[in-house]
Design a protein around this nucleic acid. Sequence first.
DNA 1: CGTGCTTTTGAAAATCATCAAGTATAGTGG
DNA 2: CCACTATACTTGATGATTTTCAAAAGCACG
Lengths: 250, 250
Amino acid sequence: MTHIRVRSLVVESARPSEPCAACDARPFSVCNAIDQRDIERLAALAASLTVEAGRTFIEEGDPAEHFFNVTAGTAKLFKLLPDGRRQITGFAPMGTFLGLAVSSTYAFGAEAVEPMRICRFSRFKLRALLDDFPAMEKRLLEVASNELVAAQEQMLLLGRKTARERLASFLVTRAACTANGATPCGHRAAEKVTLPMTRSDIADYLGLTIETVSRTLTRFKTERLIDIPSASEIVMRDHAALESLATGLH
Amino acid sequence: MTHIRVRSLVVESARPSEPCAACDARPFSVCNAIDQRDIERLAALAASLTVEAGRTFIEEGDPAEHFFNVTAGTAKLFKLLPDGRRQITGFAPMGTFLGLAVSSTYAFGAEAVEPMRICRFSRFKLRALLDDFPAMEKRLLEVASNELVAAQEQMLLLGRKTARERLASFLVTRAACTANGATPCGHRAAEKVTLPMTRSDIADYLGLTIETVSRTLTRFKTERLIDIPSASEIVMRDHAALESLATGLH
DNA sequence: CGTGCTTTTGAAAATCATCAAGTATAGTGG
DNA sequence: CCACTATACTTGATGATTTTCAAAAGCACG
């Protein structure tokens, strides 16, 4: 198989190997706003790419030529300061649409946390297509609205919550959004939370240091709020306590 | 961290006293996506209200029955924790569209910083109207995208910037967005920045305490970066230095 | 010219960051 | 399969920025 390097990602096929009609991520993405009979038009625009773990596939400040859709795996979205300080603004699981912006350059970077598959669309062509599919534009507005709400919640966390509250919030949200089977963001609280990201990622997401993340999790463990069978697995032992911590009730 | 809760707001007229066609805020708002000849349909949905300074006109968690458009004055948008900790997630100047959300309840509160005029729309009716005006829906998506970018920038500030950097960022952004005449968010850097909000508001916006805000501004003054003719007026004496501070260059 | 509010300033305290080892864990090649 | 190395994670001691507590100084308003 010939891998062609385009900037920092690997192009596996110009045509989606699994066309939109059979896409696993479709039920969770804006694409499902397009009817079965029209889906071919979307598929014609899509390039399916593989991104290996740790690879940056959107570079902050680069010309924004594409939209992306995460079809498998998870990405982290981040912004950097010149001296290297990093803020992860969100994690993008399967179904996430990326690249919404009016600006001509990307306002954030994106890097694969785990091996990923993404769908890439020409910004220009997808914009044109959107004119024919107002339903998809409506979905995009819904998605953007939801992200805005999530962003405000995150601002509350970053601006006003303690380290303990931040970690509790993170775990509770993760538990609600953990992929149990296929659902990327269900509502049932999971017992076990899988963390595909490193402590460093968590720290940069919560505005803390890795040491504080580690210490806080250890303390949760000694307090019997969680178990830590492995570094990337957390078992919620006292979901109620964590939730009340997360909402700021000490 | 003052929290005065007032439910009702002052309704001045069911019909806009200044109809949409002659609205000062229209050039800066999503409403200008609607043609002159169709603007009456929008005006028919709009109720123009006066909100006195300090009044809460959106209560977090209340049923989201309306959209709002700020036609004069400035609002602060915020989220609260049960113990009163507050995070201001943004300031909404003239032209801002409020209430975008899929949820049936408001995800944030809104309170007038200065005397305001707002346009109120029934969520249900405006949604219906939007189906006839895809251009306005497109504008809404643009607006939401821009706010998302701003939110990410704010997360970087809250999660990773020092107090000095936060204040510098705040002043630089304010300078760029200060209403010089009519433009609510121009690009020319203003010398003088007017701060309609209190130190407490600034603190809650930047994730700091009022004391830290005050001390940091005083230090900027002794360092000749700014002048503070009055508590609500800041003169940028060294815009370049503030900008490099804001971007994290010490 | 008080009265109540916001703002400023000072001193002490605390949370979280930094510096520094030490311990798992995973991936690699012998 | 096992050592070996690199990386990630944990734990401890110290330190600094920011918060908290406290009080004085400005300012607006009746």
